[in-house]
């Protein structure tokens, strides 16, 4: 008798834990032929609220770590991902990608993490300045993380897009709550498992699965979220995000898709702080 396969339950990732949705709802993810691959948690507004709380709690510790330490933690994510490469590829294939494309996307995603790991202790110098004020003061400006960031990740490429969305954000010291691709959520869940076994503190990245339709307004309107990053080109969605963002003067960053990697993506969720001090004795 052949061995019975153990099926995987795909859960969300909140505060370093893997809860099911509090709503106990799911949606069925099917392959091209219509076969159900998995039941995916249909995350609710309460799940999102819990994730924001976890992100806020994690923010102080994560933003307070040395840049060198953040760099190492992010690099470690890449290491852990490399070890699970085949799983990521398999899942992408399961969700409809060709093996070649799937392999390319996973490699690209890993390399992108390494790229930003390198930025973690460098972008500060790109965006800092010593300002030559015309008085007896020393005055300098440097970037600080905006705080808690909600992210509506791109639908495709689902895994590379997720990495493109969350890694620059946490490189800058923010914590975040990302909504995974609705049509290709498997990589996000596996990515959560990578995070759980990396050195990233729980709550820095929180991953919700579910639908844009249900959660977009929540992501944009929550009063304890300081910025929202939105991937997409849907004009109605963009308008809704920008309108809801006004409730607490949220920074709304709209990206049509994955662009060229660079420190500008980190800078999108940074603030500039300027400090003055007299010079004298």
């Amino acid at each position: 008798m052949p061995r019975l396969e153990v099926l995987k339950t795909y859960k969300m990732y909140i505060g370093g834990q893997f809860p099911r949705t509090e709503s106990a709802r799911y949606y069925a993810l099917a392959d091209k032929k219509g076969n159900v691959i998995a039941n995916i948690c249909l995350g609710s507004r309460k799940d999102f609220r819990n994730a924001v709380e976890a992100a806020r709690k994690a923010f102080g510790d994560w933003s307070g770590k040395t840049a060198y330490n953040r760099s190492q933690v992010i690099y470690r994510i890449a290491e852990m991902m490399e070890g699970r490469k085949s799983q990521f590829v398999n899942e992408l294939v399961l969700q409809g990608l060709t093996p070649a494309k799937a392999a390319a996307e996973v490699s690209q995603a890993i390399d992108l993490i390494v790229y930003y790991a390198g930025w973690a202790d460098k972008y500060q110098q790109i965006y800092s300045s010593v300002n030559p004020v015309a008085s007896k003061h020393f005055n300098f400006s440097f970037p600080e993380p905006t705080g808690v960031v909600s992210i509506i990740g791109p639908e495709t490429p689902s895994l590379l897009g997720l990495v493109d969305a969350v890694i620059p954000c946490i490189t800058g010291g923010n914590s975040c709550i990302v909504l995974a691709s609705e049509t290709q959520p498997l990589g996000a869940v596996t990515f959560a498992e990578v995070l759980a076994t990396s050195d990233l503190p729980g709550g820095v990245i929180n991953i919700i699965t579910g639908t844009r339709k249900e959660l977009l307004a929540q992501y944009a309107s929550h009063m304890d979220v300081n910025a929202i990053v939105y991937y997409g080109t849907d004009k109605a969605e963009i308008k809704a995000v920008q309108e809801n963002a006004t409730l607490n003067v949220k920074r709304a960053i709209i990206r049509s898709g994955i662009g060229t990697p660079g420190p500008e993506l980190i800078n999108d969720t940074l603030e500039t702080k300027t400090t003055w001090h007299p010079v004298g004795y």
Binding site: K136, H137, P278, V279, G280, Y281
Partner: peptide
């Protein structure tokens, strides 16, 4: 005493 404050 802060000198710059005094001067100001």
């Amino acid at each position: 005493i802060d000198t710059i404050g005094v001067e100001e």
